[in-house]
């Protein structure tokens, strides 16, 4: 085969390096590495501390095993309250987020309506649910209600933003067609907008249910009800074996929620 190559070919011209060095990128990598070293030194992230931590970790895991299975009643009450918080917060949150998202959609609403709606959404989004829960615990006292209200705020921030974006991406042809028949605003929404966004909207809502389920297990740390309070108490009492039981239960609950929301998304595709 190699015989077919021309025998007296001229010496090849100096070829361009196919992968030239990219100096700005290299400087960027060096800067990133320098920052990492600097920040790690700020946190006293040293090898001895790491080894010490591994030692602690081994003892910690040893104390976690085997998981403690004695307090079923406490576990079940916390888990079911978390689940209830997540469901109620998702339903109310989604129902509230729908009109707000509609008001924030720039292709259907005038500017003076969208700006306040967008500001409200930004405000709801900027605080972590646990921080919002602290404020609601002060406002409505300890218990599930504070957790529900905190998660409603979180749901509004997330769903309304995505819903507004979904509405802004719809095809306006169908809106014009329905308008041309003389339909009013409500009919335009029902006949032209709703069919285009319903599937995505269900997708966002199931995602929010997942997210609320995760956070409803956490708002208890600040007094918002649910399994979080049980978890935090077990941590503070060094009942690490019960902590492991609670963690396994929470992860199982979240996994079941994910399977369920996957089923809902497929149903409404």
């Amino acid at each position: 085969m190699s015989d077919t190559a021309p025998a007296g070919a001229a010496p090849a011209p100096r070829r361009r390096d196919p992968f030239p060095a990219n100096w700005p990128a290299r400087i960027g990598w060096i800067a990133l590495a320098a920052y990492t070293v600097y920040a790690a030194s700020l946190f006293q992230l040293t090898w001895t501390r790491f080894v010490e931590g591994l030692d602690n970790g081994a003892r910690f895991i040893a104390r976690m095993l085997p998981p403690y299975l004695g307090k079923w009643d406490l576990l079940w009450r916390g888990l079911s309250e978390s689940l209830e918080i997540a469901i109620i917060a998702t339903v109310i949150g989604v129902a509230t987020a729908m009109p707000i998202g509609l008001l924030a959609a720039r292709n259907l609403m005038p500017n003076w309506v969208t700006w306040p709606a967008r500001g409200l959404i930004a405000l709801c989004r900027s605080f972590h649910p646990v921080i919002v829960a602290i404020l609601f615990v002060k406002a409505v006292g300890f218990g599930a209600l504070a957790g529900i209200m905190a998660l409603i705020v979180a749901s509004i921030g997330f769903i309304a933003k995505l819903f507004a974006e979904a509405i802004e991406e719809i095809s306006l042809k169908q809106v014009e067609a329905v308008r041309a028949t003389g339909a009013g605003f409500a009919n335009v929404l029902i006949m032209a907008v709703q069919p285009q966004v319903l599937a995505r909207f269900i997708g966002f809502s199931t995602y929010q249910l997942d997210s609320n389920l995760r956070n409803s297990t956490m708002v208890g740390i600040v007094g918002g009800g649910g399994i979080g309070a049980t978890l935090f108490t077990a941590f503070q009492r060094f009942d690490y074996d019960f902590v492991l039981t609670i963690l396994i239960a929470i992860i199982t609950l979240i996994m079941i929620g994910e399977v369920l929301s996957g089923w809902i998304r497929r149903t409404f595709q």
């Binding site: 700020l42 946190f43 978890l231 941590f235 963690l247 929470i250 979240i254």
Partner: peptide, 20 residues
């Protein structure tokens, strides 16, 4: 599936409280 607050609780138990 483990919330960042739970991860934080675990690492506080291992490395002690603080930014690490």
């Amino acid at each position: 599936s483990v919330n960042s607050l739970v991860w934080a609780l675990l690492f506080v138990a291992v490395f002690g409280p603080g930014a690490l």
